[in-house]
Write a protein that binds this DNA or RNA. Structure first.
Lengths: 344, 344
DNA sequence: TAGAGTAACTAAAACGTTTTATATGTTTTT
DNA sequence: AAAAACATATAAAACGTTTTAGTTACTCTA
């Protein structure tokens, strides 16, 4: 079905020159050619619709101009909502800006060896590990290999790989400090899936702020969720059963915060009068909850963009940069946070 | 930085055989080898950690085992919410199932020629056009080329390309018939961005049902949106100003339906008592609106999966299949639709 | 007027594979 | 004992480029 693409040989023939001439004319630089010759080459190229074969070029130049993106899954049960899509978009931007192409490989933990093959088969000059859960063996595999790599999002702290992420700890720490300054003392947390280090880090920031204020975190104020709506609802119900219940709930992401809001509303608990709620991400629909969600905005697109840039830098410099870039999160104040109700 | 990967030549040397022997042993089939020789090859492979270079193989076999995914952007202003991510996940699934790799190329309408180069450079055996707006010149470009292609989602009806999509027209038609059967006569619509044919088709289904029931669509009951929250809000406000206003509003997607719900609530309009609202997509958060959104569920993952399968079929059969696969949408009845209020 | 220099172009090697055609022994058949 | 068949292995061409190292034919220079 597919017509064979014209090759450089056919162009050379059509223009009555050698193939080296074609190549040299096409990419300038080497050698000097008579304008008339160059013209003949160009018209032959035009006429045949010639386009250099990327595979052959890659082989000859030992340069594929392609990076890989490694993700466990773009979406699924552990709904990281739109995170993957947006970060990926940033990566794509960063790569195409520098004329790199992007191959994406899905790495189910169960088939990581096969997936790793798609990375280590010479088709890719480097890879971005996109928000992988700590359980995925591909992380260690990539570390051992000497393929230039950058992590975007969640990364185990043990990893030596350069990384671009949001400033989870600091952002949560600051936000919880703010809650404390409003008068909250009983502050609960619904974490994301702890298999993701971002979830752990957000909890860490929360704990830092609590400890700093001399508040002992209470186990009944903690629920281990998984970033899903349902986890938010379940978590809210459980935290409500604590005696006394928390006056504020910080959530590992917006999705769970929405679940919390929903559950609280059904229980007749007023937000923010009785309980304050804090999200993370700033999804588009965070403006739509009632009341609108106060949350920490994560610069997803930029994470992808910067990760791509950092990777390309490494590739071009030819050495591993030990670099960690933490982008700030922005506190977006809406209406789910207020001072706690007066104690009775 | 990156150690050179071991080549087949080094393996051959280590095993004391020729490179043809290594290749033949590795991929079985051709020739017959003494078990002892084969063993030597395998251990050499093992020891050196040899992995065939995908680029070189592609060149030699005239087969890249790679497909391209062409999208304008994964997300952005025209927030197609999580659509791209989920469909892409399906594509990835379908491709990896058959051991194909996936290259993804972003095609801003402004730079479509350059992007097209990434597809027509021989690096890809076929392409999936992912939910492109009609305005993107890449569509026509792909049609003219003879690269096997499949459209996933939105496609202009003029296109001859095989396509996998949700059954936009039928689903909307049925749903609007249902509204009519409940007693609605004044039914409004907030369309998606008409640059996307899916938006047009949904409107078409709506019009079919209206005309069939002898209802003349009223221009004041129509708002041209763009799939965004804000468009939903704006649309609702405009439709409310009609005299008389519609008793039901069908929306081009859930995002806009959420905007509608929000605006209606602010205006003190009761849903579904005074106005019914219908969405499209069934996002996870559709359960969370108040009241929970009645909507048409679109099988996004499956669209991607089937598109990939169809493309691989075409590639392997070597001919263009003139196939259009429309997957059914499922009506998910929640609480935003009810019979219209009695006329006064 | 020989050598050096230069302008314009090209042959051939290289990239790392697959695959076709062939070589080299050994065994079996006639 | 020659021919055929078989088992095992390999040389070399091919894939479509880039790039290195030339070559050829002029034109200067001394």
């Amino acid at each position: 079905m597919r017509k064979k693409l014209p090759t450089i040989r056919e162009v050379a023939e059509a223009a009555g020159v050698s193939i080296s001439t074609v190549s040299n004319v096409l990419y300038g630089k080497r050698g000097f050619y008579a304008p008339e010759t160059a013209q003949r080459v160009w018209t032959a190229v035009e006429q045949l619709g010639y386009r250099p074969n990327h595979i052959a070029r890659s082989l000859a130049r030992r340069h594929t101009f392609t990076i890989g993106v490694v993700a466990e899954q773009l979406l699924g049960n552990v709904s990281h909502n739109l995170y993957f899509g947006v970060v990926l978009d940033g990566i794509l931007q960063g790569a195409t800006d520098r004329d790199y192409q992007v191959k994406i490989v899905r790495v189910p933990a169960s088939a990581y060896e096969k997936a790793f093959g798609h990375i280590e088969d010479g088709s890719v000059e480097g890879a971005i590990l996109l928000a992988l859960p700590a359980s995925n063996p591909i992380i260690e595999r990539m570390e051992q290999s000497n393929i230039p790599s950058v992590v975007a999002g969640s990364i185990p702290p043990s990893s030596k790989l350069p990384c671009v992420d949001v400033e989870d700890i600091g952002a949560t720490y600051q936000a919880v400090r703010w809650l404390i300054s409003l008068g909250h003392r009983r502050i609960g947390i619904i974490t994301g899936n702890l298999n993701y280090w971002s979830a752990r880090r957000r909890e860490q920031g929360y704990l830092m702020a609590l400890r700093e204020a001399g508040i002992e975190p209470h186990p009944a104020w903690r629920y281990e969720g998984n970033f899903s709506l349902a986890a938010g609802e379940a978590g809210a119900l459980q935290l409500l059963r604590a005696e006394p219940p928390p006056t504020a709930i910080v959530c590992g992401n917006d999705r769970m915060a929405m679940g919390v809001l929903h559950a609280l509303q059904r229980q007749g608990v007023k937000v923010p009068e009785q309980i304050s709620v804090l999200g993370f991400d700033d999804e588009e629909t965070a403006t739509l909850t009632s009341p609108p969600l106060t949350t920490l905005r994560q610069p997803m697109f930029e994470i992808g963009l910067k990760a791509a840039e950092l990777l390309l830098q490494q590739i071009e410099l030819g050495k591993r940069l030990q670099h960690t870039l933490l982008l700030p999160a922005e506190l977006v104040v809406r209406e789910t946070v207020a001072p706690p109700p007066p104690d009775q």
